[in-house]
């Protein structure tokens, strides 16, 4: 039996009068790719914000590796191995692409700031190894040519990829991706799908919000469908595609939009 890495139990979030997430429960299996889909405004991003405690929950609980993380500050949650990206790519302005990626490794720096200050060989070596690792990752997503460019000067799609790479540098156990493929063209999206699979095969569980159905249906082991804050279906991609409620939720929208938003 596979272990559950994330368990969400009757999670609820009310904004003023609006119930953005209503009594939602689901699990994420260790080593799987879980997709969270739903029409615009369904509450997907809010769900991520609740899991990472960016928003205070109204009710419910979130367990990560069997531990409640609802009341931990965001940086502690990241420290436990749950790292997320943001829907509006939040690369750090004023830093180059490479520096952005290196920032992701913050949790795993062995050298103490005092050792860095003194230019000790240990710190210098660690820094050099990190740069090599970051370069390799940037190469993987074809961003190596831009390593010394201001990250905010990259096109949107590249910024989102950069954010994913930055999150990977944090060596998460579970990676939450909010619309990572928005802004990528078809061939780039395919490459990205391969990247997500590679990440999963390296033992990192992934939960991804995505509007691109071919991407979702291609890579996900399990799909969760959110509509107006409620979880209306979950199951394998096949199950969900044939679910009447899901089709209904998407009525008025094209069922397989090729690109989000």
């Amino acid at each position: 039996m596979t272990r559950k890495i994330l368990e969400v139990a009757s999670l609820t979030k009310v904004f003023g009068g609006l119930c953005a997430v209503e009594n939602v429960s689901f699990d994420v299996d260790e080593g799987s790719i879980t997709a969270l889909i739903g029409p615009n405004g369904a509450g997907k991003t809010t769900m991520f914000n609740l899991i990472t405690n960016v928003y205070q929950r109204s009710d419910g609980d979130v367990l990560f590796c069997d531990e409640s993380i609802c009341d931990l500050p965001a940086n502690k949650i990241a420290g436990l191995g749950l790292v997320r990206t943001f829907q509006s790519a939040r690369v750090f302005p004023g830093m180059t692409t490479l520096e952005n990626v290196l920032t992701g490794a913050h949790l795993h720096m062995l050298a103490h700031p005092a050792q860095q200050m003194l230019w000790l060989p240990k710190a210098t070596r660690e820094e050099r190894d990190l740069v090599a690792k970051a370069d390799a990752l940037l190469d993987l997503v074809n961003l190596l040519a831009f390593r010394d460019v201001a990250a905010t000067d990259l096109p949107m799609g590249a910024q989102k990829l950069l954010e994913v790479v930055r999150a990977l540098m944090a060596q998460p156990k579970l990676l939450l991706l909010d619309e990572p493929a928005a802004g990528l063209n078809d061939s780039e999206t395919e490459e990205f799908a391969a990247l997500i699979c590679a990440v999963r095969n390296n033992g990192i569980s992934v939960m991804v919000v995505e509007h691109n159905m071919s991407l979702v249906m291609g890579v996900a082991d399990k799909v969760l469908v959110l509509d107006a804050g409620r979880l209306i279906a979950q199951g394998t991609p096949g199950d969900v595609q044939n679910n009447a409620r899901v089709v209904e939720a998407y009525i008025g929208q094209e069922f397989s939009p090729q690109d989000g938003d």
Binding site: P73, T103, W119, A170
Partner: peptide, 25 residues
């Protein structure tokens, strides 16, 4: 020495985007 490594990067991250910084631990 400090600013060219993780300490300096963390400060810069805090400078521009505290939420994204916290999300990286």
């Amino acid at each position: 020495g400090a600013m060219r490594s993780s300490f300096g990067r963390a400060l810069q991250a805090v400078r521009t985007d505290q939420m994204a910084a916290a999300a990286l631990g």
